[in-house]
Design a protein around this nucleic acid. Structure first.
Lengths: 171, 171
DNA sequence: ACTAGTTATTAGTTGGTCTAGGATATTTTT
DNA sequence: AAAAATATCCTAGACCAACTAATAACTAGT
């Protein structure tokens, strides 16, 4: 339907119409992912850290911003790595001056991992430009368009999540 | 989906309106990425291979489907890894029976990497379900909605790509 | 007080990448 | 035609981040 108005998204005209739109949607999704991966890689290189380290740092900064304190265990769970890997990750981040280990106020087994102000600054500078760009694109959408995009992404996310559940059965 | 209000997408109502939509868009994009990453990881684990190996295999299968032949050099370039890493990657894939090395028809220095029929089958089974699911979601969009989504993703992709260009200059 | 469970760490292994260098085949120069 | 330069792939050795298994320090239940 509405076969007009696709000058911008081209490449996918075809006799069928409907099916071509779907292919275009999936392709644009793949392209987006590729671009995002490239940016992450570039960021990662420019900060001299691995992907996981950056994820961890961002998690720590977010937690700090909302007043939560983070133990190594929380990082393990969030990142999906073992506690041993988390220990060495914190070692790395501490060695590079991005975090400090502090004593846990009540549980003396545990530790609180705190990002340093410098790392906060660094991440802001490095990731700020990307975030602003993306925010600008999002703000370019009308409320109705935003609704369509959010609905689509959520539905796609749910589809993937359900898929992941039934992954054991060879289906 | 189908937007009956936003019970699903909630959390983002606020006095401002416009800005909250943008935040919701970015959040849904993040969530989608997280879900996709999880599925990839799960697939990777279930096939007992690394991420790079799966990318390589898919590249090989696509190339085969379109009649192109692939040399190790092509894999290096596509994956962005060194030739040494590519060698060991091919070693792995050959050891697990996913590919074979064959002589290059004209250039006797070179080698052609060919995916085995079994690996084709395996990838089809493993990735087919995901692709069908995603296609189903995409087909659930009207033409107009598809246009909005594709435009959005393309614009976002361009924003990221331009960002990546100016990444050397401290900006 | 003793046992069981939790939390973080250490030690050692594995997997995938890198750099450096070597082997073989092709192309270009002399 | 022979020699030099280039191209393509492989091998060797090292590094890094993840893993598993075992340990130390602590908390909580009985």
């Amino acid at each position: 339907m509405r076969s007009t108005g696709n000058e911008g998204s081209g490449y996918w005209y075809g006799p069928d119409g409907q099916l071509d739109y779907s292919a275009a949607v999936l392709k644009s999704l793949r392209d987006y992912r590729a671009a995002e991966t490239a940016v992450r890689r570039s960021t990662r290189d420019s900060m001299g850290m691995g992907e996981t380290d950056i994820l961890a740092l961002r998690y720590l900064l977010r937690a700090q911003a909302s007043g939560r304190s983070v133990a190594p265990k929380d990082l393990s769970q969030f990142l999906g790595i073992t506690s041993a890997s988390t220990t060495s990750l914190i070692d790395r981040l501490a060695a590079s001056g991005h975090v400090r280990r502090e004593a846990h106020p009540t549980d003396r087994r545990s530790v609180v991992v705190v990002p340093t102000p410098e790392s906060d600054q660094e991440v802001r500078v490095t990731l700020g430009a990307m975030h602003r760009r993306m925010m600008a694109v999002a703000e370019g959408l009308s409320a109705e368009e935003a609704r369509v995009v959010v609905d689509f992404l959520q539905t796609m996310t749910e589809a993937l999540e359900h898929l992941d559940e039934g992954h054991k059965e060879s289906n």
